[in-house]
């Protein structure tokens, strides 16, 4: 039983990491007032590109960078539509989603189910001197470690720096920010790109760390779950860590229980993500503070001459 528990706790961070990366990326988007529904597409582009590059023999680091580049390209297309052309953000996001899924399937055609080396935790334990449970939690691959540091960095930049203050101003009240001399379009586009990088790394995490292969449709709705997790974590990257860990914990429990030979109903597997969402909503609801955390200008394109 203790072994099951240790194995479960140790597997949580790797489960949580892709959700955390994508959620942190989307928080940057939404705090600047841009609703980005294209995360699933960006993740797929990064997942396929990084596998293709590694298959071509370019090494994992370059593969990851190319994946980020591909995701960034799609994020830029979305950003140009949503920020500069002021297309309805929901529509622009859905376009980016469909484009990413379609192009990734096209690029990966003929390269499905082919194994790459990818990224794995270091062999043996670096933390063998610690208690087994703690060592299990700390023995992660470097991309999973990065996810947690990235989320903390996102929180710090948004909440504790001038850059973050301006970003939040753009998301809360774009005309006021503009009047104060903040370049709204530039900040929003920058937020889309920065968020795109994190969503792309989330996608690369799925293919390089998670599966070590590419399969069409392998993101399997994880980008959409990240969109929901932004709301659940109330646009706060630190709360996103808690949300991702809770979500990862429930997701990680299922394979452990299944392989332990316990009688877990198959329907429990289907139910578990929603159960996690429900649990988090409950917790979030119980501890919610008065004000609504949603950025006031979320989803509203900004045009200086427009009457509001």
């Amino acid at each position: 039983m203790m072994e099951l528990f240790t194995a479960w706790v140790g597997s949580i961070p790797a489960f949580a990491a892709p959700f955390l990366l994508a959620t942190a990326g989307l928080i940057i988007n939404e705090r600047a007032g841009v609703m980005n529904l294209g995360a699933e597409g960006v993740m797929a582009m990064a997942a396929v590109t990084s596998v293709l590059m590694e298959m071509a023999g370019h090494g994992t680091a370059l593969a990851l960078l190319s994946g980020i580049g591909a995701g960034l390209g799609l994020a830029a297309i979305f950003g140009i539509m949503a920020v500069f052309l002021r297309v309805d953000q929901v529509l622009a996001g859905l376009v980016a989603f469909a484009l990413g899924i379609g192009v990734s399937g096209f690029l990966g055609d003929g390269s499905e189910n082919q194994t790459v080396n990818g990224i794995s935790p270091p062999p043996g334990s670096d933390f063998a001197f610690l208690p087994k449970l703690l060592a299990g939690v700390l023995d992660q691959d470097w991309l999973t470690w990065f996810a947690f540091f990235a989320a903390i960095a996102v929180w710090f930049i948004i909440e504790r720096t001038d850059l973050g203050l301006r970003l939040r101003a753009v998301g809360e009240d774009a005309p006021a920010a503009d009047a104060a001399g903040v370049n709204v379009a530039l900040y929003r586009f920058g937020a889309v790109l920065a968020g795109g990088v994190l969503c792309a790394i989330a996608g690369a995490h799925l293919s390089l760390v998670g599966a070590h292969i590419w399969v069409d449709g392998m993101v399997a709705g994880r980008g959409w779950i990240a969109v929901a997790m932004v709301t659940l974590s109330r646009w706060n990257a630190l709360r996103a860590i808690a949300a991702a860990l809770l979500f990862g914990a429930i997701q990680a429990l299922v394979p452990q229980l299944l392989s332990s030979g316990m009688n877990v109903p198959v329907y429990f597997i289907q139910m578990s993500p929603y159960l996690a969402t429900l649990a988090y909503l409950l917790i979030a609801g119980l501890f919610a503070k008065g004000a609504d955390a949603q950025p006031a200008d979320l989803g509203r394109p900004y045009l200086r001459e427009e009457r509001r």
Binding site: E3, L4, A7, S11, F15, N113, L206, G210, A211, H212, I213, V215, G217, M218, A220, A252, P255, Q256, L258, S259, S260, G261, V266, I269, Q270
Partner: peptide, 26 residues
């Protein structure tokens, strides 16, 4: 003995890898 796990999908490689990992750990 054979530990069995139903993935509830015909193809979800991320989940398959996670189940494989859990089975090996056990």
């Amino acid at each position: 003995i054979v530990h069995v796990a139903f993935v509830n999908s015909w193809s979800d490689p991320v989940k398959e890898a996670q189940i494989s990992q859990a089975m090996i750990q056990q």
